[in-house]
C-alpha cells in the first residue's frame, strides 16, 4: 500500500498535516458539530497515547523484575538481598508510572483502555512470581489488588516528595491537600492472564535452578509441615489443573486457549525435568554439580 491516500481525482491527500487553506475556510452548517466531536475524540486519542507510553515502560520494568527473579536459585522466604534491591528499585519506578496513569483510568475509563494496559498483566506476572519464590503459593487477586493499589499510592507520594526536594523552600511549601490519590485497579483478566504467564516463568525457574543446583526446586521442609517438601513439579501440576478446570473465559476465547496451550507445554517440560531428576539424578557423581554458591546448601537430597 502506498503511504498516502488519494482523493477521487487522483491528487494526494494530506490528512495529518495542516489543511489546505481553502478547506479550512469552507465552513458549512455541520462544521461546528464536527469540531465539537473532534475535540472529544482528540481527548480520547491523547489519553490512550499517554497510557500506551506508560504501559510500555511498565512492561519493560516488569520484565526486568522477572529477569532478576530468574537469577534466584531456590524457593525461600527471603529473596537474596541483591535481587531484592534490584526489584525494589524497579518497583519504585513502576509505582511512579502507575501514579501517573491512575487518574486516567478511573470509573468508565478502566475498561475503555484495558487493551492499552497490557502492562498490568506483566506486572501481575512479576508480582505473582516473586510471591511464589518467597512462599511457594499463588497469590490471589484479592491479595494482589491492594498491593498494586499501594504501589500507585506510593508513586503519588514519592512524586510529591521529589517535587518538594526540587524546590528550595521545600519545608515551608504547603503540601497539596490530602485527598486520597486515585489508584490502579486490576481486572480479572489482568490477573488471570498474568498467572497464565507465571507458569512459563516457573518452568524457566525450575529448569535453571535444577540445572544449576542439581535439585528440583521445592519448599523448605519446615514451611509446609508436610512429610516431604512439595516440589515445583507438583506445583506446576496443580496450576495446570487449576486452569484446565476453570471455565474458558468467554471474553477472549482465542487468547485464553493459546495461553492454556502454552501452560500445558510448560507443565510437561517441568514433568520431564522431574522424571529426569528421578531416573538419572542418582547416577550423577556428587561432585559433578557446578557450585553456584547462591543456592548450594549441602548435597542435593536424592528421592
Amino acid at each position: 500500500m502506498s503511504g498516502f491516500k488519494r482523493d477521487w481525482s487522483g491528487n494526494a491527500k494530506k490528512r495529518d498535516g495542516p489543511k489546505p487553506a481553502q478547506k479550512a475556510v469552507a465552513r458549512n452548517a455541520y462544521t461546528p458539530m464536527f469540531e465539537t466531536l473532534r475535540d472529544e475524540l482528540d481527548q480520547h486519542h491523547d489519553r490512550r497515547e499517554r497510557l500506551v507510553k506508560a504501559s510500555r515502560d511498565i512492561t519493560a520494568l516488569s520484565k526486568k523484575i522477572i529477569f532478576s527473579l530468574q537469577r534466584v536459585r531456590k524457593i525461600e522466604s527471603q529473596l537474596p538481598a541483591n535481587i531484592q534491591a534490584e526489584i525494589d528499585s524497579r518497583l519504585t519506578e513502576i509505582a511512579k508510572l502507575l501514579a501517573v496513569i491512575a487518574p486516567e483510568i478511573q470509573g468508565i475509563n478502566r475498561y475503555r483502555y484495558s487493551r492499552s494496559l497490557m502492562c498490568l498483566e506483566e506486572l501481575v506476572e512479576a508480582l505473582t512470581f516473586a510471591h511464589y519464590l518467597r512462599t511457594q503459593t499463588l497469590v490471589s487477586q484479592d491479595e494482589l489488588a491492594p498491593i498494586v493499589e499501594d504501589l500507585s499510592r506510593q508513586g503519588a507520594t514519592t512524586e510529591d516528595a521529589v517535587m518538594a526536594d526540587a524546590g528550595d523552600s521545600a519545608e515551608n511549601r504547603p503540601r497539596p491537600a490530602k485527598t486520597e490519590p486515585p489508584t490502579v485497579s486490576l481486572t480479572q483478566e489482568d490477573y488471570l492472564y498474568g498467572v497464565f504467564d507465571l507458569t512459563g516463568e516457573m518452568m524457566r525457574f525450575a529448569t535453571t535452578s535444577t540445572a544449576l543446583t542439581g535439585a528440583m526446586a521445592s519448599g523448605s521442609a519446615a514451611g509446609d509441615g508436610e512429610d516431604e517438601p512439595r516440589s515445583i513439579v507438583q506445583d506446576m501440576h496443580h496450576l495446570g489443573s487449576f486452569f484446565e478446570m476453570l471455565p474458558v473465559g468467554k471474553g477472549n476465547r482465542l487468547a485464553w486457549e493459546r495461553k492454556l496451550e502454552v501452560t500445558r507445554q510448560s507443565v510437561q517440560k517441568v514433568e520431564k525435568l522431574g522424571y529426569d531428576r528421578t531416573i538419572r539424578g542418582s547416577e550423577r557423581p556428587k561432585g559433578w554439580i557446578p557450585d553456584l554458591s547462591a543456592g548450594d546448601q549441602g548435597p542435593p537430597d536424592e528421592e
Binding site: 489543511k19 478547506k23 455541520y30 458539530m33 464536527f34 473532534r38 475524540l41 482528540d42
Partner: peptide
C-alpha cells in the same frame, strides 16, 4: 459534500 467536509475536520487515528 457538506458532511464530507465535516469529516475532514476530525483528527483520525
Amino acid at each position: 459534500k457538506d458532511l464530507h467536509a465535516g469529516f475532514q475536520v476530525l483528527n483520525l487515528k
